[in-house]
Write a protein that binds this DNA or RNA. Structure first.
Lengths: 186, 186
DNA sequence: ACTAACATGTAATCTGTTACATGATTGA
DNA sequence: TCAATCATGTAACAGATTACATGTTAGT
């Protein structure tokens, strides 16, 4: 998980409801298709940082069986921060596949459909700029010009990704722009 | 660019021939489709680390016009390190799209076709394990079960990526296994 | 003379990894 | 009782970002 992602994941998951650190860890793990074990050494310091900034509150859980469970709750400031990050993502969140997916996972929490569409349009615009994987002498190579078979594979796959994602984005934007139906909270 | 990628990129580019830092920077930038400006604060320390490990040698360029240019050359140990990284990639290099592409960019330098095929087969095996984007209650959700439209988009796109990449990988593996033709150095 | 591109570096700060450390609860 | 899972943390270290700092060369 690239830098900064963890913070958004924590805010986004807590945006759905309070939970404790260990559950957060399991959910983040599930979010990524079990690819990346979230290390404790990243998670707990990240929570502590968010607490220090006043985005998260922590309460020792009483009653329930387990020991030392600390229930984490998003504060009002925390929710504002989450919405801000969803509404105005950094360029890197738009251009990087993994990070963009990290955004998508929580975008429904941004209730404003026009704001959601704006985010998708930014991604679409990025995918539509003619950027390719190999620049040589200043301009992108076309697949036929690529001798290296592995480079050719990169181009072929990158193309397919771009086509599939653009198709979905166009449908989703149209859907958001048309009806006041369909956008569900989770 | 995720951690560790920079080092592989430097080794891989220098594996093609000596160049100085500034050119390295431009080439790395081009490799990624101009997405991520490589910061000086990452590049020069990375070069220094590689030099300290004996993988790279540095020679002040004489004669040529520009000032202070330092030509970087891969040492024998450096080339062994590059080949080792290409031949035995870490799990993360296989499971992460971006990192796997970072490998592919230099895989042709690993001359052994069987070793190349082994790397592609590892990626193929990874893509064929039934991992999805959303695990809930321990098992992956299918697209129809996903209510959130953005989550559905993630699934649809992830599926398309997987299909396209697997198709290319199968072709490429077959090609590598069959003929002793075609695998070109760059 | 000025600006853009070439060229190389350092420092403060942030975030992540791995390894270490601790302890409770649950089920076999 | 023993292992697995739940649960939370710290410390050493690695690598990245941004901002700062410096100087050359080539073109207008």
């Amino acid at each position: 998980m690239a830098s900064g992602d963890l913070t958004l994941s924590i805010l986004g998951l807590l945006g759905r409801g309070p939970m404790h650190g260990y559950e957060l860890k399991a959910r983040i793990h599930g979010l990524s298709g079990h690819l990346r074990p979230v290390s404790d050494g990243a998670l707990y310091p990240a929570i502590a940082r968010l607490e220090k900034k006043g985005f998260v509150e922590r309460h020792e859980e009483e009653g329930a069986g387990a020991a030392r469970r600390q229930v984490l709750t998003l504060t009002e400031a925390g929710r504002r921060e989450l919405l801000r990050r969803l509404r105005e993502p950094a360029d890197l969140d738009i251009s990087d596949q993994t990070r963009f997916f990290g955004l998508l996972a929580f975008l429904s929490q941004l209730r404003d459909r026009e704001a959601q569409a704006r985010v998708l349009r930014r991604r679409l615009a990025f995918l539509e700029t003619p950027a390719s994987f190999f620049y040589e002498d200043g301009r992108p190579l076309r697949a036929e010009e690529v001798g290296d078979p592995f480079h050719r594979g990169m181009l072929v796959v990158a193309r397919a990704i771009s086509v599939a994602e653009r198709e979905w984005l166009r449908e989703a934007v149209a859907e958001l722009e048309s009806a006041p139906a369909g956008a569900r909270p989770e």
